[in-house]
Amino acid sequence: MNARDRDVEGRARSARPRDGLGRPLAYGAAGVERQPEGVVRSGAETVREAQRLLDAGMPFHAHEVFEDAWKSGPEGEAPLWRGLAQLAVGLTHAARGNAVGGARLLRRGADGLAGCGDAYGIDVAGVVGWARGLADRVEAGEEIDPAGEAPRLGGPADPA
Rank of each mutant, 00 (worst) to 15 (best):
M1K: 13
M1L: 15
N2M: 12
A3N: 11
R6P: 09
D7Q: 11
V8Y: 15
E9A: 15
G10H: 11
G10Y: 09
R13N: 07
S14C: 14
P17S: 03
D19E: 01
G20S: 12
L21T: 04
G22W: 06
R23E: 12
R23Y: 02
P24H: 12
P24S: 11
P24W: 10
P24Y: 14
A29G: 00
A29D: 15
A29W: 04
A30L: 11
G31L: 03
V32I: 12
V32T: 13
V32N: 00
R34Q: 13
R34V: 10
R34A: 13
Q35R: 15
Q35L: 11
V39Q: 12
S42V: 08
A44L: 14
E45D: 15
V47K: 07
V47R: 10
V47N: 01
R48D: 14
A50M: 07
A50I: 05
R52C: 01
L53F: 02
L54K: 01
L54G: 01
A56G: 08
A56H: 06
G57V: 04
P59M: 06
P59T: 03
P59W: 07
F60I: 01
H61C: 02
A62V: 02
A62N: 06
E64C: 05
F66H: 14
F66I: 03
E67G: 08
E67V: 08
A69G: 05
A69C: 08
A69S: 13
A69V: 06
W70G: 01
W70R: 14
G73N: 08
G73E: 09
G76W: 07
E77Q: 14
A78K: 15
P79L: 10
L80G: 02
G83S: 09
L84R: 09
L84Y: 07
L84P: 02
L87T: 03
A88C: 10
L91K: 05
T92A: 06
T92E: 09
T92V: 01
H93W: 13
A95N: 02
A95V: 08
R96A: 14
R104K: 15
L106A: 03
L106T: 05
R107H: 08
R107Q: 11
A110L: 05
L113D: 04
L113I: 09
G115H: 10
C116H: 07
G117K: 14
I122T: 10
V124C: 07
V127L: 10
G129F: 01
R132Y: 02
R132H: 11
G133H: 00
L134M: 03
A135D: 05
D136T: 14
R137D: 11
V138S: 02
V138F: 01
V138N: 02
E139Q: 12
A140C: 08
G141N: 10
E142N: 06
E142F: 00
E143W: 07
I144H: 03
I144Q: 04
I144D: 05
A147F: 00
A147D: 05
G148S: 01
E149L: 01
E149H: 00
A150R: 03
P151V: 14
R152P: 06
L153Y: 04
L153S: 02
G155M: 10
P156G: 09
D158Y: 06
D158M: 02
P159N: 09
